[in-house]
């Protein structure tokens, strides 16, 4: 029993332990180096200094405000992108003409997705919420569109034909066949897109706003607050990992289990 447990003990608590262990080692090493070489806090902070910065931020509410602002932008930009990308992907996946028109455009603009839009976004929307949401939108939109097209194209033609010959009209086929059939791909697209969006967000916030994690990082540099910079970097990574592992990955897995196609033999 016990040895069997050890051999496949990569789920539950053991899995978490194995994932956390390298970080614990890294943190210990970090503190050791800072103490051994007496590193100046202007170059790199000590572990306690970062912890203190985190506690201070929690106490005065600034940390929650920055994280909240960042998450709200990501959520808004992603929601808008999905609302536009899924219908466009559906249309492209079913209408050859629409696909032929949009595919080259999407290829071109997907290269630009992300921070390349910041200059023009700030001209259009000013510094703040609008510009950053626009950057997020661009990061998510193209990959979700692409994945929706991919998802629709994986649906066997027989399923659409079956629905049509059972009396489903065009819209009903979209709702009952194309959308559920493409859903696993759409969710994968959202997960990938959010990864791009999160990276883009931090960059955009350094330039185009006065709240958010990216801004917090960039502002701290002006005051040589290395402990705040490192705290921000840790948060950027940790929040994404938590979001991806605890929310997106389970959602993707469940979608594939529930809606995933099992191909006819």
């Amino acid at each position: 029993m016990r040895s069997a447990n050890r051999s496949d003990g990569r789920d539950g608590l053991p899995a978490f332990f194995w994932a956390a262990a390298p970080f614990v080692v890294l943190i210990l090493l970090w503190q050791l180096v800072v103490e051994l070489f007496d590193v100046s806090p202007l170059v790199f902070p000590s572990v306690p200094a970062v912890l203190r910065a985190g506690l201070d931020g929690l106490a005065d509410g600034s940390l929650a405000a920055h994280v909240g602002a960042s998450l709200l932008r990501v959520a808004t930009g992603t929601a808008l992108a999905v609302l536009v990308a899924v219908p466009l992907g559906m249309a492209m996946g079913t209408q050859r003409g629409i696909a032929a028109f949009f595919t080259p455009l999407l290829r071109f603009f997907s290269v630009l997705a992300g921070i390349a839009w910041i200059p023009i976004a700030t001209l259009w929307f000013g510094y703040g919420f609008g510009a950053i949401v626009f950057v997020i939108f661009n990061a998510v939109f193209f990959v979700v569109t692409y994945n929706t097209v991919l998802g629709v194209s994986t649906i066997p033609i027989e399923l659409r034909r079956a629905a049509a010959s059972l009396g489903a009209a065009r819209l009903a086929i979209v709702r009952e066949v194309l959308l559920p059939g493409a859903l696993p791909n759409i969710v994968t697209g959202i997960r990938t897109g959010l990864g791009f969006a999160w990276r883009g967000l931090i960059a955009a916030e350094m330039i185009a706003t006065s709240t958010g994690l990216g801004y917090m990082l960039f502002l701290a540099r002006d005051f040589y607050r290395t402990e705040v910079i490192v705290l921000g970097m840790i948060l950027v990574g940790a929040i994404w990992l938590a979001l991806d592992r605890l929310l997106l990955a389970p959602l993707e897995r469940r979608t594939i289990e529930r809606w995933g196609l099992v191909r006819p033999t």
């Binding site: 066997p156 034909r161 079956a162 995933g260 006819p264």
Partner: peptide, 11 residues
């Protein structure tokens, strides 16, 4: 229509 591949909606 009855299809060779069954064409049941898997979801």
């Amino acid at each position: 229509v009855v299809f060779q591949s069954y064409a049941l909606f898997p979801w």
